[in-house]
């Protein structure tokens, strides 16, 4: 369904090159819920941007249903970490969710139904006319999720969507994602740096190495499909899996720096060069 083959991304700075992702190959089956976890700065965001067609890889390719991804493909929706910057502050909640559907030329009645359903599904049925900045962080991220759900994507990519919300909200949102996934049958790729979150959410967990990034392990999470915060997290198997992923990440961390900072520095230098000239 979603194939990543020999993906490599090198950022060209002015003074140095930064290899964010070296050689990634993995496949996500249709209808799967896969969590991608790795040490911080291992190029998770870079990978996700390449997969969503927002960034062109240096080498290798991403295929969605056999078709190479060269730009953002129609059947894909992305939820970003920075909810505060991914919603249009000049539109109310309803318009935010509806805009991509208008662009997709969905008929009006159908649009109304999709928006209503999506907002109800994330528990925001009574917030249609609010503006995003009137909502709490968790609610804003719900709006972003509703927008993605209403879009009816085949694949939903999520880039550390809960990294910036508080712990309780986060637990609610995790259950929301499991719920939506089971109800909609959508394929989900969930990027996170949180090991517990990855194990709790995923049917599969892909563990990445430190930068330059390769796949370290693909792990099937053999926990029951019915999960809840209290009992699932108390299962001995959960603890085992969690421990295993933790060891892998620790092993991955040894002996490598982080990419993200270096990338930022390289890109920043590039920006300044243009502004200054």
């Amino acid at each position: 369904m979603l194939d990543v083959r020999g993906l490599k991304k090198v950022y060209e700075g002015r003074q140095r090159q930064v290899e964010a992702v070296r050689d990634l190959t993995f496949t996500i089956e249709s209808g799967d819920l896969v969590c991608l976890v790795g040490p911080s700065g291992c190029g998770k965001t870079t990978l996700l941007k390449c997969m969503s067609g927002l960034l062109a890889p240096t080498a290798g390719e991403v295929r969605l249903d056999g078709v190479p991804v060269t730009g953002p493909p129609p059947g894909m929706a992305v939820v970003f970490q920075e909810y505060g910057r991914s919603l249009f502050p000049w539109m109310n909640v309803r318009d935010n969710v509806e805009l991509p559907l208008k662009q997709k030329k969905v008929a009006k009645a159908e649009r109304r139904r999709l928006v209503d359903e999506a907002l109800a599904a994330v528990g925001l049925a009574d917030a249609h006319t609010a503006y995003p900045w009137q909502l709490s962080g968790g609610m804003q991220q719900r709006v972003a999720i509703a927008r993605a759900v209403a879009y009816q994507p085949k694949v939903l990519l999520m880039d550390e969507p809960f990294a910036a919300v508080d712990a309780q909200t986060r637990a609610d949102l995790e259950d929301l994602i499991r719920d939506l996934w089971r109800k909609l049958g959508v394929t989900v790729l969930f990027v996170t740096h949180d090991i517990d979150e990855a194990v709790y959410l995923g049917q599969k967990v892909i563990i990445l190495s430190s930068s330059p990034t390769v796949v370290r392990e693909q792990l099937t999470i053999d926990l029951p499909d019915e999960r809840d915060q209290l009992h699932t997290r108390a299962l001995p198997r959960f603890t085992e899996l969690r421990g295993h992923v933790y060891e892998q990440i620790q092993a991955a961390k040894r002996g490598a720096g982080t990419v993200d900072e270096a990338v930022c520095a390289a890109e920043g230098a590039d920006d300044k060069a243009v502004v200054g000239s």
Partner: peptide, 20 residues
């Protein structure tokens, strides 16, 4: 930049991007 990426990923390009 994030809003810009959001627009691209939802196919909001050209005139729609300019306007919205």
């Amino acid at each position: 930049e994030v809003l810009s990426d959001t627009c691209r990923s939802y196919g909001l390009t050209g005139v729609a991007r300019l306007r919205h």
